[in-house]
């Protein structure tokens, strides 16, 4: 089953080509859409919502054509924009109820759904206060709530972790994961950090300059390049030598070492080596794969 599919989709603006013959298919679950700024992510979402006409090619969302059935699509999808979109003098409740009604929910159902959804995104007593005084994290939650309030089958989340601190980012990512699994709503989430999508997505699409760079299940990404970054106070070279001795692939990068993870035993080897050499371990971090890494790889999938 495909949730959305594009075929030779292009969109040209007078001066730039935002999308260039993009062909992708997305199944249910959480799908990440990764690309640098200006890669065409937001343009793609606008086309999928039926708000922007494609220059050529076709796109389907939940089996409906975006140019012919835009209105029907917008009934069953939710959209969380990247930019601020909250009037400061309204409370989160009033705002969410109003937008639920705009999605075609009757008054009482709109109230119930708004209360439910605001609770699910983690807004409690503060939802009765004017949104002007909200923190960025709370604002992002309201933006997410309005996208979910009419119980869509699919939501487009444009940069939901933008501007959040590390803890807020983790909470938002966990929430997105819950939407995709527990709530049973398919998610298309954009980001420019592949690392954070890695944790929550089933499938990742990488686009650059409006063309498809790569589209594959998350397991394929993580299997190919799992590294662990190790930083020790002194004796970096000794550690590298010891690890190489034990058959690990090690590369030095500045003050740190990048160790390739072949199997879970790599972590044990690493721990033992640090202990044996009696080194001061500063940090050990799971390698965050970034878009740049994907650029280096051949886009063979």
């Amino acid at each position: 089953m495909t949730i959305l599919a594009t075929k030779g989709l292009s969109r040209r603006f007078p001066r730039v080509t935002a999308l260039d013959r993009l062909t992708v298919a997305v199944g249910p679950g959480v799908t990440g859409l990764v690309g640098a700024n200006g890669a065409g992510k937001s343009t793609l979402i606008k086309i999928l919502l039926g708000l922007l006409e494609p220059s050529e090619g076709t796109a389907q969302v939940l089996g409906m054509d975006v140019t012919a059935q835009g209105a029907e699509i917008r009934r069953v999808v939710g959209y969380m924009p990247e930019h601020d979109c909250l009037p400061p003098d309204l409370s989160a409740t009033e705002f969410t109820v109003h937008l639920a009604r705009m999605s075609g929910l009757p008054r009482t159902a709109a109230r119930e759904r708004a209360a439910d959804v605001l609770r699910h995104v983690g807004l409690y007593e503060e939802r009765y206060r004017a949104m002007g005084g909200y923190s960025t994290g709370m604002k992002q939650r309201v933006k997410l709530a309005q996208a979910l309030v009419h119980d869509p089958k699919l939501v487009f989340l444009d940069e939901p972790t933008n501007g959040l601190d590390p803890q807020g980012r983790d909470e938002m990512l966990a929430l997105i994961r819950r939407i995709g699994t527990e709530f049973g709503i398919s998610v298309l989430v954009t980001s420019h950090l592949l690392g954070e999508l890695e944790r929550i997505c089933d499938h990742v699409i990488v686009i650059d300059g409006g063309t498809l760079l790569r589209s594959s299940a998350i397991s394929e990404f993580t299997q190919s390049t799992q590294t662990v970054t190790v930083e020790v106070e002194e004796g970096r070279d000794a550690l590298a030598a010891r690890l190489a001795e034990r058959g690990e692939t090690v590369t030095a990068a500045g003050r740190t070492l990048l160790v390739e993870v072949r199997a879970p035993q790599t972590y044990d080897t690493l721990r033992d080596a640090v202990c044996d050499l009696d080194l001061c371990l500063i940090r050990m971090e799971q390698g965050r794969q970034r878009i740049e890494d994907v650029f280096k790889e051949p886009a063979d999938v």
Partner: peptide, 18 residues
């Protein structure tokens, strides 16, 4: 003015309202 200033318009347009 508020819908333009606080950019609420895209939220309306992503719904059935034209």
């Amino acid at each position: 003015a508020p819908d333009l200033r606080f950019r609420v318009l895209p939220l309306y347009l992503s719904r059935p309202v034209t």
